[in-house]
Amino acid sequence: MDLHLTQKIAILPVPRPTRLPSLVPLLVLFLAIAGWELFARFAGLPAFILPSPTQVAERFGRALMSGNLLYHTAITLLQILLGLLSGVLAALMLGYAIAKSRLFEQVVSPFLVASQAIPIVAIAPLLVIWFGPGMFSKVLICALIVFFPVLVNTVVGLRAVPRSLYELMRSLRASRWQMLRLLEIPAALPVFLGGLRIGATLSVIGAVVGELVGADRGLGFLINVGRGQYDTALVFVAVITLIVLALGLYGLVILLENRLLAWQKQ
């Protein structure tokens, strides 16, 4: 087994911004919300089972005004960003070492592949027991989830640097650092960013899982509170905020791609 098994991750197409068709999903979203509103009103379900969009919006307004929502969102976002950052950094360093040394790859890759059989979500309670209910356990879970796809794409990206460009750099007597800065980083960037796109989305899951298991702050905590108090509208508010966070992070990576990979675009 080696890392190439997961190479599929590397070749997801980059979505291009388009103008007209973007109206279609918006329309669908609008219709879905309208349908939900009608269903919630006329099916006669109590609000703790299915609140209507208006009730959710009203709850959203209250949570926002009280400052609660912003506080918990900020906590979750901070954990996400720290987890993403440390997961990506670890993946970059290990990925570089793996791509550069066959021996190192042979030593670590069985462990890495096997580690993927461990469901991080299932060991999240353990991590919270070991590292406490504070921020650190969330950042750790988040980093662990982000780590693997970014690692794979880093390795695949570095391995795909053309040999002929290495020869060019060597004929010009480039130093190791120049090799990295002028060749390896720009050449591996497209595939790496593909991994980062996946990592960014996973990072939200990582942080929330940690919070659901045990925390006194954050959007995952808010979900638990809402559930405990039959305040289902609050659960919706937290979930929707999480979706917005995930989409925002994803969009940020796309933005980064559009900037850094302009040479690939038409």
Binding site: P162, S164, L165, L168, P186, A187, L189, L261, W263, Q264
Partner: peptide
Amino acid sequence: FVFQQANLMPW
């Protein structure tokens, strides 16, 4: 060094 293929950096 000039290679058989131009060997330019596409970025």
